[in-house]
Structures are given as structure tokens and as C-alpha cells.
Design a protein around this nucleic acid. Structure first.
Lengths: 140, 140
DNA sequence: AGTGTTTTGCAACCATGTTGCAAATAAGTT
DNA sequence: AACTTATTTGCAACATGGTTGCAAAACACT
């Protein structure tokens, strides 16, 4: 049951179990891809206030339940962290794929970010890869 | 002289030479780092209308003079394309570094984006790398 | 200098994101 | 189950970011 999983996740992260949080977590679990704020608002059917959605996403981010994906069109997307993003503030490096055809964004879990040689003096703390192209579903 | 270079760049791209465009190009040439829309507005000292800045950036993007850099905080930054981004719509892959200390964003020209093995069915068209950490200047 | 095209500034508008505060809801206790 | 406290929500209001239409100004060309 999805509902049970949602409750567990919230409890594990010391968050009050409320309707809004449950609904948004469910959406993430169901969708299997990244969601933007407006995606969530639409899918939730106007049932929750805009502000609540913003605050919930903010909370989930801080607790490490989701991570944010930068995009070129100024619309942050969020995706569930598998394995709780190794629990805490230190996020893993991610490879994200944005499909130009369907607009969907997915987090490629299997692909590892290669190590990069930076010029002297630069210290890397986090690496994000953004790959755009055509995804599996759209590629016939 | 910077002024001459600016004029040349505009002429080469079949753009009318106007005060606003010259000023914005100068800012990019001087700053050696990525600029956001609001950066430009501030640095230009309120001399130009907000709309003009937006439209100028849009034009520069289309002509391949600048490229946009996705960021995690929903504020697109723009940077000059060295070598005119190999002239045209096909942008090269870029590695961008965002400093958590000074907030500055630079385009690391020397670093090449490694080739990545994507899962079957995925076709890559463009790759962007976003590395955050501490930059050379801030690292003492 | 004169003419046609391009660019600018203004006003108005919509989308996105934030803050303060009172009302509502959840959690913990007896 | 009722009560108390802490947390969360919704509302209003605001700030910022970005777009569009249109008339006036600036530019390019002869």
C-alpha cells in the first residue's frame, strides 16, 4: 500500500503527517520522474494552497526526501531521493536527463558521474550533470 | 579598445549598434564570469529599461553570442561564448563552476565534458555540467 | 538629410516565489 | 477522550522575474 509507505517516510523524518504532505509524497512515488512546483499544483487539483506546496517542497528538500534539479528554463524540478540521499545534507551527485520531446525529466540512477580534473585552486563539492536529448519512451 | 571590439561583434552578428547592446556586451567582456539578468540591470545603473535587457539577452542568445547556464536557485545566468560557440545554434558542451562562497559562476573553458554511457534508448544531444564548490579566488 | 526598418521605453499584465499572522490541525499527555 | 502545546495551513499582501502590444525614438542606408 502506497499510503502506508508515505506515512512511514514522513514519520522517519520527524514530520507531522498531514494531508498535503501525504498527497505530494504520493505524487512523487507514482510519477517516477521529476516534478516542478506547477506540476504538483495541477496534479493535486487545486486542493492545496500554493504556499503550502512551496513550503512542503522546502521541507522535503531540507529533510533530504527530495533533491532539486536545475534546468535551463528557470523552472526547478524536484525528484525523490532513492535511499534517502544517503541520509542527511550531503547529496549524491546526480545525472539528470531532460527529454526535448516529452519534456519529462528523470534521474538516471544507474549512471555514475565521472571524476573531473579541475584547474588548480578549484574545490568541487557537488557535481550535477544535465543531459538533454530524446528519452527511451519518445525514441519509439 | 573594448569599444571597438564590441562594435565588431555586433556588426558580425548583423545587429544594430545601440547604446544598450554595447553596454551589456561591455559588461560581459569586463566581468569574466556569468551574469544574471539582475546583475546586468544593477551594473548598468538603471540606465536601460528592464524589458530592453530581457530582449537584448534574448537576442544575444539567439545569435549565439552568449549561452545560458542553468542553476539550482532558479536564476538563469548568462556567459559569453568564446569562439562564438562554434557559430550557430549548436552549442558546445560546457562545464560551469559555481562558487558557494562568492556566488560567482564561471565557464571552465579548459575542461572537457567526459563522454557518458547512457542506458539503452536514450539519445544525448547536449550535456551540461554544474560543479559547485569553492573557486580559486575564494580558496585563499 | 530623408526614408524605411529596427529598437527602445512605457504600461499593463501574468507567473513565480516569499512573509506575517490568525485559524485549523496534528501530536503528546493525562 | 479531552486538553494543551507545537506544528501546519490558508489567506492576504507583497516582491521579483518575465512577457506582450504599441507608439516614439534611434539606427542604417541611400
Amino acid at each position: 500500500m502506497v499510503n502506508k509507505k508515505v506515512d512511514e517516510l514522513l514519520k522517519k523524518n520527524h514530520l507531522s503527517i498531514t494531508g498535503g504532505r501525504k498527497k505530494i509524497l504520493e505524487l512523487f512515488l507514482q510519477h517516477d520522474g521529476a516534478l516542478s512546483h506547477s506540476d504538483i499544483e495541477k496534479k493535486a487539483g487545486g486542493k492545496f494552497d500554493r504556499v503550502t506546496v512551496y513550503r512542503t517542497l522546502q521541507t522535503f528538500l531540507e529533510k533530504g526526501l527530495i533533491h532539486s534539479i536545475p534546468t535551463a528554463d528557470n523552472s526547478i524540478r524536484y525528484a525523490l531521493c532513492k535511499d534517502d540521499c544517503s541520509g542527511g545534507h550531503h547529496h549524491d551527485d546526480h545525472v539528470h536527463f531532460i527529454c526535448n520531446a516529452c519534456g519529462n525529466t528523470v534521474c538516471l540512477e544507474g549512471v555514475t558521474v565521472p571524476t573531473i580534473e579541475l584547474p588548480g585552486g578549484y574545490v568541487s563539492m557537488q557535481v550535477d550533470m544535465l543531459i538533454s536529448g530524446v528519452c527511451k519512451s519518445c525514441n519509439q
